[in-house]
Nucleic acid binder design. Sequence first.
DNA 1: AAGTCTATACGAAAGGTTTCGTATGTCAAT
DNA 2: ATTGACATACGAAACCTTTCGTATAGACTT
Lengths: 130, 130
Amino acid sequence: MPRPPAIPQPTNAELAILRVLWNEGECTVREVHERLPEREVGYTTVLKLMQIMVEKGLVRRNESSRSHVYRAALPEREAQRQLVTDLVDRAFEGSAASLVMHALENNLATAADLAEIRKLLDERSPRSAP
Amino acid sequence: MPRPPAIPQPTNAELAILRVLWNEGECTVREVHERLPEREVGYTTVLKLMQIMVEKGLVRRNESSRSHVYRAALPEREAQRQLVTDLVDRAFEGSAASLVMHALENNLATAADLAEIRKLLDERSPRSAP
DNA sequence: AAGTCTATACGAAAGGTTTCGTATGTCAAT
DNA sequence: ATTGACATACGAAACCTTTCGTATAGACTT
């Protein structure tokens, strides 16, 4: 099944911007700049990055108002899917299970998380199955 | 609990080399070069990369023989742990559970994988627990 | 001893990311 | 109309990654 266009992997700085867009929805450059939590970074830096991201197809923008309005080209879930797949390829030799176990083994998942994961597991392959 | 020194994130090319070292154990540059599956890349390119990796602390080398012998500074599991943690931070806002679900939802895990993951889950928080 | 093979070291180009200064344009209020 | 606030565009520096050519040296063969 042909995957959607397949967009370049976002770099670190690009990912930080995408996170803002995913959280806030549509944003101007100024809004993104204000909400970027990381270290201080200039306004024009963010602007330039977002312009590049338009060229790469990572974000779309609406130029109808003076302050252009940007939105992520991919929904968060899809982008995360690509990131996980990429990491699995690069570092886990294609074994998603191995990656999952690492995530589970390193604390990070709360009890509620574990319950939710278990629920997902049960949906995918019920306990009673062979 | 203080984590070990914490080594810089390996780049793509560095990760490819690390995978060879993890699979083969100790290697000379030539051995790594021969075993690199990816596209053709010159011998001196691999050499240079591995020299840089020594500087960064990603690999150690034994210079006692004419052909230096390299090994990964971190065991595979630990490096993978750092990669997963990093991805969780950068793209999943710290929610490992979210990353796990992505991995699970995208096919990749076989039935055997799922069984193994379930086993791990049961160990971490038994079904009977509150 | 000279030649060949193989090793490391090193410099530097090519390409990508990230940074920001400066130029320029638009709008609104004086 | 001039000014001030704020917007985009753009060029270019600084930095990192990846690539490889060339230099140099040790070991082995002839």
